[in-house]
Amino acid sequence: MSPGVSLLGTTALLFDAPGATDLPTQQRIWSLAREAETWPEVREAVPGMNNMMLVFARAPRNLDALEIRLHEAWAAATPLPLGGRLIELPVVYGGEGGPHMADVTGHTGLGIDDLVALHTAPDYPVFALGSHPGYCYLGGMDPRIATPRRKIPVLSIPGGAVSIGGTQTGVSASAGPSGWNTIGSTAMCFFDPTQHPPALLRPGDTLRFRAERVVR
C-alpha cells in the first residue's frame, strides 16, 4: 500500500502512512518530518498519528516535484527512535476530577480498580503534539479500556483532565471543549509560553500514569 498525499488548500500538504497505527511507523514519520523540515518550501513538518502535515513556507508552483521528493524520502526513511524522557504523572482517578468514570466502567464492564490498573500499566509513547497548546497524542493504550467518544461533547473540561476517547487516552493541557470521557485529573502544567520549548512534552517522550489516589 502506498502512502496517501493530499492537499490542505494552498496552505499545506498531508502525508498519510499506510497500515495500522504503530510506533515503528511513527518513528519513520519522525524521521520523514526531520528531513522535510529542511526543504525550502516547507515552513513546518508536523507529525500526526502515523501521518504528517507539511505547511508551506510559500506554496510551490511545481507541486509534483515536492510530492515525488516526499515519496522518495518516505521510502528512504528508517525508524528514528527519538529516545526521549520518561515522565510520571500522578493522577487522581474518579471523583470530581473524573466525572465520566462510571461511563467508562459501564462500557468496559471493568471495576474501577481494574480500569485504573490497566490505565496505569503501559508506558505511553508521545506520538505527536496537537489539538491545543501542549496537548499530546499518546500511543499504547490497552484496547480493553477503549470507550467511544461521548455523543454530546462536554462544553469545557479543565486543564489536566485525563480522558479516554475511542482507543486513545490523553491529558488536556488547558480548559476547553472535549468529546472524550474524563476519568481523572492531574495538576501537571504541560504548557508555558514563556519557556523554551513552551511544551513540557515532545514526540519521543514517554508518559506513565501513576494512581495517586482513586476516588470510589
Binding site: L8, G9, T11, A12, L14, D16, T21, V46, G48, M49, N50, N51, M52, M53, V55, A128, G130, S131, Y137, Q168
Partner: peptide, 10 residues
C-alpha cells in the same frame, strides 16, 4: 481517520 494536522479553511 487518525488525528492529523489541519489548517484554517479546511
Amino acid at each position: 481517520l487518525r488525528s492529523h494536522g489541519i489548517v484554517p479553511g479546511v
